[in-house]
Design a protein around this nucleic acid. Sequence first.
DNA 1: CTTGAAGCTCTAGTTGCTAGAGCAGTTATG
DNA 2: CATAACTGCTCTAGCAACTAGAGCTTCAAG
Lengths: 158, 158
Amino acid sequence: MLSIGKLSAATGVKVPTIRYYEQISLLPEPKRSGGNQRFYDHKALERLRFIRHSRELGFSLEAIRDLLSLSDNPDQPCAAADAIARAQLAEVESRLARLMALKTELQRMVVQCAGDTISDCRVIEVLSDHAHCLTDHLVGDDALPLAGGSQPLPADAL
Amino acid sequence: MLSIGKLSAATGVKVPTIRYYEQISLLPEPKRSGGNQRFYDHKALERLRFIRHSRELGFSLEAIRDLLSLSDNPDQPCAAADAIARAQLAEVESRLARLMALKTELQRMVVQCAGDTISDCRVIEVLSDHAHCLTDHLVGDDALPLAGGSQPLPADAL
DNA sequence: CTTGAAGCTCTAGTTGCTAGAGCAGTTATG
DNA sequence: CATAACTGCTCTAGCAACTAGAGCTTCAAG
């Protein structure tokens, strides 16, 4: 039996995050000891490790919720898990492609800057006008939804 | 003079987003016409284009705020703008490295899945145990702050 | 002159946490 | 046994960068 602090240390997930996961029902409510303190068993430890590892791989909490419910029913076919993983892979690949275009553009911008005054700074100039760019580092398809529907990858899992 | 709708069409930035930028003082308050409607001049158009392009390149609104104030003072040295751009480049490069590790791991996961039941699904198995992974797709340095201090790149600019 | 699109303000929701206030319970030391 | 220091508890509010919706007003076209 682990206190929440020990569980945190054992998994690398911060204490408030564990309570947050409980709040959104990603973790079940654990037993409480006399003075209302949470105590966790081995199953909870495993589940939290699963969550953490999935987060590291960029899965959203919603995807993880699905993956967990799949892993709770081991007799079902694994096609669903496979589909979630494939979707995540596709997501990562498309982000990779975009990031590589960004990197190219940023590099050009930085390299060309001669270090003079702002008035002839390449950085500012390039930012002012997309025509200076080589690639189409645009976001969407045609309406260019700058920030849009999904935000599957956690900002820090990149 | 452009209405907010025309400005939106001309820049690809959604109407509510324009109002949001005004609210956080990234755009100045525009003139209003008789019935309280916003009207924008050419300067506002340029400024919004600058913002949009910077967002496409992954700069945070805070970084853009700095870049804008730099571009408003063209006599100053451009070292500051250069530094912001270099920081952004470094950020993008580190995200790229992480994303590539993720991609490798996800690919391995997906390829190995034989399509049987969950009980012997590689996807679930790998997620359960980081030891299955080749790379250290871990986030932090030692404390592994799963999600942490900075979130410079907007989730959708990836 | 009427209709429908576009504009207005305001509040609240999204994701995945984090930070802080203000307590109560637990553990280590004197 | 007392006390300090730590860990835990609940609750609310905040972060980025928007998005969605309610409920209202104004404008342009036919």
